[in-house]
Simulated assay, not measured.
Amino acid sequence: MSITALPAPLLKQRDVQEHYGVSDWTVNQWVRNGCPVEYLPNGHRRFNLAEVRAWMAEQAPAGREQRRRQSEHALSQRSA
C-alpha cells in the first residue's frame, strides 16, 4: 500500500480576502499582476494558499523598491 500526498485545498477568493484582510478589488489586482490562480471547469477561481504566499514573497522586495522610488519622487517634487 502506497501513501500519496493529497493536493492542498484550494481556497475561494473570499477565503483569500479574509486571510489577508483585503478587498475583492485587491485580490483581482493581484490576479492581474500574476498571482497564481486555478480556474475550475465552471469558470470559478480557486487559490492554493502556499502558491499565493510564495508569489507574495516574490512581490515584496519589488513592492518596497517601488514605494521607495515613489516616496523619493514625491519628496523631490515638494522641494522643487
Rank of each mutant, 00 (worst) to 15 (best):
G21C: 09
A80V: 06
E38F: 08
A8N: 12
M1S: 15
D24N: 14
S71F: 10
H44D: 13
L6W: 08
D24I: 10
F47I: 01
T26C: 07
A60G: 01
L75C: 04
G34T: 05
E58M: 13
E38K: 09
Q17W: 00
P7W: 09
D15S: 15
M1H: 14
R69I: 09
H73K: 11
A5I: 06
T4F: 10
S79M: 10
D24P: 11
A60T: 11
G63V: 02
N42Q: 10
P36L: 12
M1N: 13
L40P: 00
Q59D: 01
D24V: 12
P7Q: 13
V37Y: 01
E65T: 12
H73S: 10
Q77F: 07
A54V: 04
R67C: 10
Q29C: 13
L49K: 05
Q29N: 13
R14H: 09
G63A: 05
L6K: 14
E58Q: 14
Q17N: 01
P7N: 12
R69Q: 14
V22W: 07
A54Y: 00
D15Y: 02
D15M: 08
S23M: 05
L6G: 05
C35R: 04
L75D: 06
L11K: 13
L49E: 00
R78A: 14
S76E: 03
V16H: 02
K12A: 15
R32W: 01
G21P: 03
